[in-house]
Every structure is written in C-alpha cells, then in structure tokens.
Design a protein around this nucleic acid. Structure first.
Lengths: 193, 193
DNA sequence: TCATAACGTTACAGACCGGTAACACCCCAG
DNA sequence: CTGGGGTGTTACCGGTCTGTAACGTTATGA
C-alpha cells in the first residue's frame, strides 16, 4: 500500500503544485510564501531549500504550466494522428473549454502584467515559452494547409489572449462568449483563400 | 499670469494624475501610497483627505481613464463628422498607435487581472466601463453599415485586448505586430457580406 | 545499526504596507 | 484683523512581506 494518507508526494512537488494553483487564483503578488507553505502542508524553510527565492519559484511554476500545455499538444496528435486540421479544431475546442471552466486567464500573461518590472527574471522565461506556443500554432496552421499560416495563427492567438482577459474584465457575457464562432469563422475564411 | 511655478494645480488633481501614471507603469499592487504622494509633491494626509482609501483612489483613476477614452470617441466624431466608417478606421489607427507607443496595456484589464479578489469594489466599475466601451464600438460598427455589427465589434475588441497583453508577454515582434492587418481585413470582410 | 540527508519548528530580522493622530502653517474670505 | 479650511510635517500603529538562523526530528539507505 502506498501509505494511507493522501500525501506520499515529495514536499517540493507539493509546493510547486500548490504555488501554481494559488498564483493562478490569487495572482503572484497576491499570495505570500507563508500562505503557500501552509497550504502545501509544509514550512518556509523547506521551500527555501528547494527554491532560491520567490522569483525562482514563480519561474518554476511557469515552466510547469508550459509543460502542461505541451501535454495538450501531444494529446491533439494522439487523438487526431496526422490530421492537422482536426487538431486545429481541437485547439479551438480546448481553448473554449478553458474559457468556460476557468475565469482567471493565462498564467503567463497574468504574470507578465503583474511583474511590471521590465528586467524581472520571469519575463525572459515568459517570452520564451509564449514564443514556443506561437511557433507550434503557426506550424499547426501551416500543416493544416492554410495559406498565410502565420497570420491565422497570430490572429487566433490574439483572440484567445483577448478572450481570457475580457473574461476577467467584462465577464462571461462579454465578447469572449463569441470566441468559438470567431475562431471557426476565421479558420474557414483562411482555408477558402 | 497664472503663477510662475508649474504647480498651480490642486493637490487632488496632481495625486490623481500621478497615481494614474504610476499605476499604469508599475501596476496597482506595485506602487504604494507613499510613492504616489511623494511623486505628486504632497503627502499622505492630503491624499487621505481627498480619497477614502487606496481602493477609492484606484476607482477614481479608472474613471479618469474612461473619461480620457470618451474624449477619444468625441475626437473621432469631430474629425470625421457623420462618416462612421472613417471613424471605425480611426479607431483602428488609434488602437495601433496605442500599441506602438505604450507597452503596458489597458489599465482596466490590468486592474482586473491584478485585483484578483472577486468582490473587489473596482471590479464593478471595470465591468461597467468596459461594457460602455463595447456598446460604443458596437454602435459604431452598426452605423458604419456592417452586418453582424456585434460580432465584428466583439472580434475587434478581443483582438485589441489580446494585442495589448501579447505585447507584454511575447513582445513587440509577436502577434500584436499584425494587429492593423487583422483589423482592417476583418472590417473589409464584414463589409463585403 | 548508524551516518546522513531531508524535513519541521520557532524565532527573528528588516523592510514595506495602508491608514491615523496631533499639531503647525498659510492663505484667502469675511 | 481674524478665523477657518486646505495643506504640510512628524510620528506612529498593526500588519504583512521575503528571507535567514539555529536547532530538533524523522526517514532513508548502505
């Protein structure tokens, strides 16, 4: 038996997962180290033995988020092997689900907004990871046989980013409610050219 | 003569303008009352005589921002009286200029992200003001003779919102660089239907 | 069994935060 | 001249923040 209690996970992983959840819900500046360690069922010293600083923890959380996102991309491939157009539609569906089930937006974008200092170490990481996401979407559009793949990918990116933000400022009844319609319309329109 | 020194403005207005600028640049949670009052050339007591709390100051700043935005809309009307389509193109140009000259995005959206507490008093105000902006854009699209005016307006809204946040996370070379092309393409496409 | 590394506990440092109290000042209206 | 409202100054409160020190406890694995 792997221990009766729920906790057979290493403190480091518990901290990382808890921090990710709390940063997402309350914002980076809105949650302190003490709150994280307490929620993770550990203490401050243990956290600082695994992470150099709060900034370091933030960066590791963002990397973990990017890792989850990569898992999504792999799921698209396994669920629609070789069918890039179906994968693109799956991307739209995934984005819509994300909008419906979670009203706190994209961790990377939120972090970029919250960490206003232009030389914050997390900024470099955010830019890298966001760029990687963009590249994947561009490749997907291209492989799906779309002319002007970059333009379509960038448009879809902005739409999703905007929908996530709009969801937080205007609410669910706002412009973000039409995301799927917009995205599907765009894909059809680009395919037709 | 209206006084030799630069400061013939009331402390309240100086505080409001300074706070607006600093909130915009460093984020709401990233700037304290002391920093604002010092930059405004006054002191904490004077601030608290004019504003109930920091939250109150935040709300007043957002209202001031909305007021500036309304001035923009009036400028569109005076510069292109009656020509709603020209005003719509002017909106796109204004948005693009905003993207080029300022990389810190929309104060309301940023505030909505930073103030993660769902019952924060500013949230109501943000929603109201954003809704008003949306209504104006929908009306403009409709009066410009576009079918599906709501859909176009919402799409343009999301594109701009997304471009503003993408500018902060991916940078100026990212998807936001194509904003004008996307927006103009959309308008043309909606007009053609 | 026993050394060693990981983990937990308590206490603390130093800084910053929002907000208030008490009091001195200055300038303009009456 | 006078009084009062708007303003500036200083000091302070209680709280929270990141990060560290010192020491005790537990688990692991050779």
């Amino acid at each position: 038996m792997e221990d009766g209690t729920v906790e057979r996970v290493r403190p480091r992983d518990r901290i990382l997962e808890t921090a990710r959840d709390m940063f997402h819900k309350h914002g980076i500046r809105g949650v302190g180290i003490d709150a994280i360690t307490e929620a993770a069922g550990t203490n401050k010293m243990t956290l600082y033995r695994h992470f150099e600083s709060k900034d370091d923890l933030i960066i590791e959380c963002l990397r973990a988020t990017a890792c989850s996102a990569n898992a999504m991309w792999e799921k698209f491939e396994t669920e629609h092997p070789g069918d890039k157009l179906a994968q693109l539609h799956a991307w739209v569906r995934m984005a819509a689900d994300c909008l419906m089930s979670d009203s706190r937006g994209c961790d990377m974008a939120n972090a970029a907004i919250e960490l206003s200092e232009s030389d914050h170490p997390a900024r470099r990481v955010i830019k890298e990871l966001k760029q990687a996401q963009r590249d994947r979407l561009v490749a997907l559009c291209r492989d799906a046989g779309v002319g002007q793949a970059e333009l379509l990918a960038d448009t879809l990116s902005l739409l999703l980013e905007g929908a996530r933000v709009s969801l937080q400022s205007v609410g669910a009844e706002g412009p973000s409610a039409q995301f799927v319609r917009m995205a599907e319309g765009l894909i059809a329109s680009f395919k037709a050219r």
